[in-house]
Amino acid sequence: MFPIVEARPLARGIKLFVIQAPRIARKQKPGQFVIVRLNDSGERVPLTIADADAAPGTITIVVQAIGKTTMLLSMLEAGDSILDVVGPLGKPSEIENFGTAVVVSGSVGTAMAYPTARELKRAGNKVISIVGARSKDLLVLEDEVRKVSDETYVVTDDGTSGDKGLVTDKLKQLLAERDLHYVLAVGPVPMMRAVANVTAPKKIKTMVSLNSIMVDGTGMCGGCRVLVDNKSEFACVDGPEFEASRVNFDVLMQRNNMYREQERQSIERLQADPQAELNKLRENICAHEACAADTAGVKQ
């Protein structure tokens, strides 16, 4: 059982959770993720670790409510618990002094990009962050990113915050003005692909963090396989970061749509009576807590 010690909305449909998970907090490095399962009937979904603090033993995750599980998770508050949290999974971001590093993030992707930006800065890079979102009310962690970046640019599709346009507009501009040595892109697949296309002609080392569908997260199932240089690699153990120029984004998008119909059905079911689903989840967690207390009692 993993207690939620803090839960607060960051933006429209995006919520931050601080979770008690001492083992993960001790080991987490930027770029890694956890897999959560909310209750006994729940699915396993990968979520980015935005931060960790080993002393109190907590990790921070930022969740956008887009599927059934993330919607239900977003209804939870401090005092609730998550049944299963496992990690840290995946390879950490590659951190070295590249020179000038640009960290491009879209919406909730900023949560994953932020700790890597911080480490890049710590490693001596000049860090330029481009934070994008469709609109102002979908921007997250802007202040945190500013603190760890030498320069921060905000870009929104509708111009409600920062520049109006796409993150790639800003990236192109930077590319024209100065030498860039490293680019990390974290966000929706079309955004990552667009970034890859912008940096490819100049052969700038560009990494993307892939969000493919996973089950176990340890390499056992192969569901998260992506085509990298036309060969299968597993996002959960070989990634999640890959060199952008090697990634087949079409296949990634196609595979991410594999369960679209079932996802729609699950969301419909949740939305028919969200409170009932929430109550069911809380009852399930209570049952587990009672069971855990029993076992502890037996041992004493």
Partner: peptide, 23 residues
Amino acid sequence: SANEFLTRVNLMRAYRFPDYDEP
């Protein structure tokens, strides 16, 4: 892979979707 197919069906009870969430 057989691992994924069986894990979804057995461990995650996908055969009881949508009562269980894993598709």
